[in-house]
Amino acid sequence: MPYTVTVRDHMMVAHSFTGEAFGPAQRLHGATFVVDATFGADELDADGVVVDIGRASAALAEITGALGYRNLDEEPDFAGVNTTTEVLCRTIADRLADAVAAGDLGPAAGLATITVTLHESHIAWASYARPL
């Protein structure tokens, strides 16, 4: 994508993982994520933008607000799922794609991709990219 716009938010969650690979993270623990949502387009719209930054920020804040300050182990959407950083990236990207489809980000005919990156710390992060 020659054009991208990124908006940022954060969220704090509690969760645990199933599986020996996760060691002590099998126990309930907290995580704080910086969340970046990057919207990509091949061309700018008639106003010269990829997406309305205000609407994109609001959509991301609504999603992180719905996930934040919760024990994700208790959320029906995640029943039986390890809520790894990668899984949470995909969840947020899919919810943003739903918001685009619903028109919540305004006219977004030129949008082609969404990439969500969750930063676990200043040295570790994961991303998920999807087409629209």
Rank of each mutant, 00 (worst) to 15 (best):
residue 116 V to N: 05
residue 83 T to N: 11
residue 21 A to G: 00
residue 100 V to Q: 00
residue 21 A to C: 07
residue 83 T to Q: 15
residue 123 I to K: 15
residue 9 D to T: 07
residue 71 N to T: 01
residue 44 L to R: 00
residue 120 E to A: 12
residue 49 V to M: 08
residue 17 F to E: 02
residue 56 A to L: 10
residue 85 T to R: 05
residue 127 S to T: 07
residue 60 L to S: 09
residue 130 R to W: 02
residue 3 Y to H: 15
residue 53 I to K: 04
residue 73 D to L: 05
residue 43 E to I: 11
residue 52 D to H: 03
residue 99 A to M: 09
residue 74 E to Y: 03
residue 32 T to V: 06
residue 49 V to A: 12
residue 88 L to A: 11
residue 86 E to W: 14
residue 7 V to K: 04
residue 34 V to Q: 03
residue 130 R to S: 08
residue 2 P to Y: 02
residue 43 E to L: 03
residue 68 G to W: 01
residue 17 F to Q: 09
residue 13 V to G: 08
residue 50 V to K: 03
residue 110 G to V: 13
residue 129 A to L: 04
residue 55 R to I: 04
residue 46 A to W: 01
residue 46 A to K: 08
residue 77 D to Q: 08
residue 116 V to T: 11
residue 128 Y to Q: 06
residue 101 A to E: 12
residue 100 V to R: 04
residue 89 C to I: 10
residue 62 E to Y: 02
residue 11 M to V: 08
residue 119 H to T: 06
residue 20 E to I: 15
residue 48 G to T: 07
residue 33 F to S: 02
residue 101 A to C: 07
residue 121 S to V: 02
residue 89 C to P: 13
residue 106 G to M: 11
residue 88 L to G: 13
residue 12 M to E: 15
residue 106 G to K: 10
residue 73 D to F: 06
residue 16 S to G: 15
residue 122 H to D: 15
residue 21 A to Y: 06
residue 99 A to F: 03
residue 27 R to S: 13
residue 41 A to L: 07
residue 14 A to M: 09
residue 44 L to C: 01
residue 128 Y to P: 05
residue 18 T to W: 13
residue 100 V to K: 01
residue 121 S to H: 10
residue 130 R to D: 02
residue 22 F to I: 01
residue 123 I to Q: 14
residue 32 T to S: 10
residue 82 N to T: 11
residue 17 F to H: 15
residue 41 A to Y: 06
residue 79 A to Q: 15
residue 116 V to Y: 04
residue 70 R to K: 12
residue 50 V to F: 01
residue 127 S to K: 08
residue 115 T to G: 09
residue 62 E to F: 05
residue 55 R to E: 12
residue 106 G to N: 11
residue 16 S to V: 03
residue 51 V to C: 13
residue 126 A to P: 03
residue 26 Q to I: 04
residue 77 D to Y: 06
residue 59 A to V: 14
residue 63 I to E: 02
residue 85 T to F: 04
residue 24 P to T: 07
residue 34 V to I: 10
residue 86 E to I: 12
residue 117 T to F: 05
residue 126 A to V: 06
residue 106 G to R: 14
residue 57 S to G: 12
residue 47 D to E: 07
residue 121 S to W: 02
residue 43 E to V: 13
residue 104 D to L: 14
residue 55 R to G: 02
residue 47 D to W: 00
residue 57 S to L: 03
residue 91 T to R: 14
residue 6 T to F: 03
residue 76 P to C: 09
residue 49 V to S: 10
residue 80 G to P: 09
residue 78 F to V: 04
residue 119 H to K: 05
residue 127 S to G: 03
residue 39 F to V: 05
residue 97 A to I: 14
residue 22 F to D: 08
residue 20 E to H: 14
residue 123 I to E: 15
residue 42 D to L: 09
residue 78 F to G: 10
residue 122 H to Q: 13
residue 42 D to Q: 13
residue 24 P to H: 08
residue 118 L to M: 13
residue 24 P to K: 14
residue 76 P to D: 09
residue 33 F to R: 06
residue 41 A to M: 07
residue 79 A to S: 10
residue 65 G to P: 05
residue 93 A to K: 12
residue 112 A to I: 02
residue 52 D to S: 08
